[in-house]
Design a binder for these strands. Structure first.
Lengths: 348, 348
DNA sequence: GTTAGCACTCCGCCCGAGGGAGTGCTAGTA
DNA sequence: TACTAGCACTCCCTCGGGCGGAGTGCTAAC
């Protein structure tokens, strides 16, 4: 990601910035005249033209056709984003909306995330996304085997309100007595983290009588899935209607692909899990293989809930995105999320 | 819904049918010539023209402009649908796909519905929808109060794998002893239906000591919500990407509105709950107030899971929908769903 | 009641012209 | 050497007019 691109020098950078910002605002290719005015560099449009030609040569800008203005390439956006000052400012209204949203104490993380994703989509006019924290460090509050007639439900409740369930076919050998036995045996893991508990269950299974052995393995498997998020790890998505807005100039086919991926949670998860950093992170266009044909960018930030369990929240929008404002919104929401979770923990 | 429209007579009905079917296939206004060929009425296009003019007069067809063909109005579609033979046929491939999907025994209803909605969206190329059955008649397998530090989780597990949870702030007076007491007390409802259990809890609350009183009320409230589906009653939605397809001639703004409603689960629920009947039901365009500006139709069918608890499954697509095939698909999936649930019950 | 024939309407498309935005280049200036 | 003014050139976009065609509605004949 940190490609060794040559430093542009202040003026080229300013021109690039002006092109990006004007293009984002108008969604029309940007001409030298407009840049000369907007960038306030005190040079004429002719000079700008030279700079723009150079920027195109370097791959930061492109040209729909000879006599049109310039539009940024993905690389151009990348440079722009990297050069962006850290502190994007929120509008007063946005700030208030965020504050209002986090006024209530955090209770159910899942619900809060749904709300936060909606909030982000309202703030940015793009679609909001969130990946709930993995369960690995969360403590288990309860683990139960529930007899459901022909099947058996394994139910796990985590410290932060997480509930994982899985229903498995119950082979005949799982008689009520074994189930009760296994359930009693597995209570040893209460208070352990999901990861630790999984190991404990495997150990218990080894020691347990044959009739209970498989049951313990099944329970261990539910924990494994909870940790890895293979099945349940849904991505919370909200505000996708924004993507269908007329002002986003996506072609119909692109829009369709975008929606398809937003539904395929697994793919989405890969993208979101690949972007991990301590701060806001931006993935532009084809920078990630999965997002190659999206013509879209993702802005994400991690948040902490509990001790070290980390989730991700962010937005998806067109590459022609208002990165500054999107990053500010995402950063602010992630920060408030972390803070709210910390307060909820302190109270505990 | 059953408007007292005059009977059209066989020929007008045939003309209407031909217009609808041709229009659905080609998405172009249909001319008299085309109908004369397709409908096989053995009359000339001039006669068809007269009939079409009459149908327009009656409100079944409309005219984009003087010299264009006809397209059906919502009323036209309605008549067409009502006159449709009951037994739409599935293609062999579709039949196989459905069979394959229901080959496995039903375990977790929620998971099955997600799959079925995807299945329907694949079969029809529209978007799939489902409302899980309300909890009212389901039996409660477990009801627990779980201490989560500053808050309290009420957890209910139903006979068919349904899990409702709610996290509530725990006022100070809820000391561990009261919680334990209330939990013991409320076990009386095991095996009762959600509705009955709710009443039982209210009765228990009246008898219980003050310290446990509120806890029992909270639990009763969780059941009430589970039954009414005020909060949790999510609608399962899948395959929305299909709606963004180029071949669906929605304007961007309409598409946006459609997606917005698909995200507002409450609204959607109202629409789906309003359509209840024993068989496949079609809601066309503005027939339902909520769907007024959708330019979309909904095809739904109820399915039974368990004894009398009824959910709904269906598809949303453009008013210009292949109703015959959509109805056949929805009917088939609903039937298999009911059947699979019955088998699962029999095994119990 | 049905049909053939026909005038008429109106859309969609093609075409070419004109305007305009923006470029790239060249020559001149500080 | 860096910048600027000027200018020719390119290419898109739009607009208007002119078909061609699809389809209608009507009339008159069967």
């Amino acid at each position: 990601m940190a490609e060794a691109r040559p430093d542009l020098g202040p003026r080229k950078a300013a021109v690039l910035r002006a092109v990006v910002e004007t293009y984002v605002r108008t969604s029309e290719p940007v001409g030298s005249e407009a840049v000369a005015e907007h960038a306030g560099l005190g040079v004429s449009s002719a000079t700008i033209r030279n700079e723009m030609a150079a920027l195109e040569e370097l791959g930061y800008l492109s040209h729909p056709h000879t006599s049109a203005g310039r539009i940024p390439t993905d690389i151009g956006y990348r440079h722009y984003v990297d050069a962006l000052p850290v502190g994007g400012k929120l509008k007063e209204g946005q700030r208030r909306e965020i504050a209002a949203h986090f006024a209530e104490a955090i209770v159910d993380l899942e619900e809060v995330l749904k709300g936060s994703v909606q909030l982000l989509s309202r703030l940015t006019q793009y679609a909001g996304l969130a990946v709930p924290p993995g369960a690995s460090e969360e403590q288990i509050v309860r683990l139960e085997l529930i007899d459901m007639g022909p099947s058996l439900m394994v139910l796990v409740v985590g410290q932060h309100g997480r509930v994982d369930k899985q229903i498995v076919d119950r082979p005949d050998q799982f008689d009520p007595k074994s189930v009760a036995g296994a359930e009693r045996r597995m209570q040893a893991i209460r208070g352990q983290s999901y990861t630790d508990a999984q190991a404990t269950l495997l150990r218990l299974a080894a020691e347990a009588p044959a009739s209970e052995h498989d049951l313990l393995l099944v329970a261990a498997d539910v924990l494994r899935i909870a940790v890895h998020g293979e099945r349940n790890a849904h991505v919370v998505v909200g505000g996708v209607a924004n993507l269908a807005d007329e002002t986003q100039a996506w072609r119909r086919a692109t829009l369709r692909r975008l929606f398809e991926t937003l539904e395929r949670e697994q793919d989405l998860l890969h993208v979101l899990q690949d972007v991990s950093s301590d701060d806001v992170q931006v993935t532009i266009g084809a920078e990630h293989p999965t997002t190659g044909d999206w013509e879209a960018s993702i802005v994400t930030a991690p948040f902490k809930a509990g001790d070290a369990t980390v989730g991700t929240i962010g937005v998806v929008g067109p590459t022609r995105m208002d990165y500054l404002s999107a990053m500010a919104s995402v950063r602010a929401v992630a920060a408030r999320l972390t803070q709210a979770a910390a307060e909820a923990d302190a109270e505990r």
